[in-house]
Design a protein around this nucleic acid. Structure first.
Lengths: 230, 230
DNA sequence: GAGTCAATGTCGCAG
DNA sequence: CTGCGACGTTGACTC
């Protein structure tokens, strides 16, 4: 990993064209050749970047560039997509490099999969019935849970951490398709999430989809600790 | 901007919980207090981070941490969301800081807004008619273009750089709502994009939505240079 | 501040 | 490899 603090200007051409005027910025060059241009604000997204796989070449400035004060030009390109990032360095404030070794990787805990698993064991929260299966297949992707309620009605359940409009659309597509299967009649839908945004709720209910709020802590409390990872 | 190369371990708790085992990484501390943890690969996304507004405090390691070899502990928190990022520094390889000054900002060309603007001036590409307005309002968000064609039929147009299934869903919602307005009858939809994925096209045409491919270079060629930024 | 939509989205998994 | 959905999405803009 190499980091260069430098006064620079940047041109990007690829999916779009973008341009950065002369200013001081942090340039990061990673071991895989990828390059990031960071300013001293914003968030984690760089102002410009080039993703791997890419190759970086350094060239001398041409006459015009030299006259403008350019000391060095970096050209980073992705041959496949023909994206090109050109960084013109003027004054270089600092240039540091360190070997970081291997990255063990990020470990994530407790996401939607866990919520779905808990809910599969606690069908009562959805009004009861019996679980047919998790990840019930349809031609356009699996429904999170398929249940048959105590009246014999099939229930397709979409589980989300946060219930938004996209989730309702997704469940609607599933219901649309599953509704064509005569063996799955009658059929209804439940949209279950830790929180459901008002517009998502309105859209869901307008389409006859029931909304259920899930209490993760409560669900986890009922869960058997010995079955879980932590 | 401060960059620290250090052997460290990281814990994050917020929307989810995540942790990073001990390894060498680059820590960036920006002027606004935000912190990024980068490895020597991946892409521009950090392994962990804390977005502004947030506050970073540095504390001495406790007894247990000292025994484990921790030299310093960074705690970065966002009071609003109660997100917390804890970075335990073991060996510090380097610690650099430079003032970058103000960032003039990124200038972009070729994004959807530009495509929409060009298309508004070149309604012929959609079969002709007259533009009623860009960003035609509906209760669930604005339609990119509203046109009245030569037959007097209203045409709601969704413009995308890349036409995918989400865009068709979006336009369908608009058509659904606008179809209830008796003043906008008859009404049809056009899905216009630089490229349209096969499934998106199938879905669109199944719903009676016409698909139109846009040639950006051609559209830009017809555009009047004096009206544009560069 | 909430809602809505775009993004050089990126990432990860399954087919 | 491609499609597809999730993401601590982030960011920009409107109401």
């Amino acid at each position: 990993m190499r980091t260069v603090f430098a006064q620079c200007s940047v041109e990007y051409s690829g999916r779009l064209d973008a341009h950065l005027e002369l200013a001081n910025r942090l340039l990061m060059v990673k071991a895989d050749g990828s390059v990031l241009v960071h300013s001293d604000g914003g968030s984690y997204k760089p102002l410009n970047w080039m993703s791997p796989p890419c190759t970086m070449s350094v060239r001398e400035p041409d006459g015009e560039e030299t006259d403008a004060g350019v000391s060095e030009v970096w050209e980073v390109s992705n041959n496949k997509t023909s994206d090109l990032l050109v960084i013109r360095l003027f004054e270089v404030l600092a240039d540091y490099a360190h070997d970081l070794g291997t990255e063990p990787g990020l470990i994530k805990d407790g996401v939607e999969a866990h919520l779905q698993q808990l809910l599969a064991e606690q069908v009562d929260r959805l009004g009861g019935g019996s679980l047919i299966r998790r990840e019930y297949p349809t031609p356009i992707g699996p429904v999170d849970l398929m249940i048959r309620d105590t009246n014999g009605t099939y229930v397709a359940v979409e589980v989300k951490r946060r219930g938004e409009i996209d989730g309702v659309e997704q469940l609607t597509r599933y219901l649309d398709l599953l509704g064509r299967d005569p063996l799955l009649q009658p059929l209804r839908g439940i949209f279950a999430a830790q929180a459901i945004k008002p517009q998502a709720r309105v859209l869901a209910e307008d389409r006859g989809i029931e909304c259920v709020i899930l209490d993760y802590d409560e669900m986890r409390g009922i869960d058997h600790p010995e079955d879980r990872l932590f």
